[in-house]
């Protein structure tokens, strides 16, 4: 999923303009000409220049219409679904772990991830179980990181 130079240039230019406009509202240090807006404005100016450079370079190379070059994997349903599954599994962990606790959520997330990668359930389940307990013991117990607890598995903490 690759954007062309012209598209990248336009996106950079627009990003720079957006940062500049948003930075206009930031206050200066009392009694000074500089403050919270100085740095974002400086970044925005150089971003705009980079955007213009990319657009100019693309135009010199004969590119007239912004475009998107799709990689082979984006045309297949499998790889796209697998890429999306990583993001979905992270969100599932964030949402579910505070309710159900770390161990069951970590176990389910890892098993599902392995199933997505076509690991057999007979291998995925024990590996995920051992990994979840190992992470909980090392981070949760040894390093005292307050991983979300499960009400029915408190003996592990």
């Amino acid at each position: 999923m690759r954007v062309t130079d012209l598209t990248l240039g336009l996106l950079t230019l627009l990003g720079g303009i957006a940062i500049y406009i948003s930075a206009l509202g930031f206050k200066a240090i009392p009694g000074q000409a500089y403050g919270a807006g100085t740095m974002p404005r400086a970044i925005a100016l150089v971003t705009v220049l980079t955007g213009i450079f990319l657009i100019f370079k693309a135009a010199l190379a004969g590119e007239r219409v912004p475009g998107l070059v799709l990689a082979d994997w984006t045309r297949q349903r499998g790889p796209m679904a697998r890429a999306a599954s990583v993001l979905v599994l992270i969100v599932v962990y964030i949402m579910i772990s505070p309710i159900v606790g770390f161990l069951p959520t970590a176990f389910v997330v890892m098993v599902l991830a392995m199933l997505v990668l076509r690991v057999r359930l007979l291998i995925a389940a024990p590996v995920a179980l051992v990994a979840a307990i190992a992470i909980q013991q090392s981070f949760g117990k040894l390093l005292l990181v307050p991983l979300p607890r499960s009400s029915f598995l408190t003996f592990l903490w």
Binding site: Y93, P98, P146
Partner: peptide
Amino acid sequence: QRVLMPLILMFCMVGSFAINNSVFGIWLMF
């Protein structure tokens, strides 16, 4: 790799959580 990557993903989430003990770290990582 097929077994390792899911474990790494979990390690990443726990590592991001552990810095401030907050799920916000995982959102940032995301």
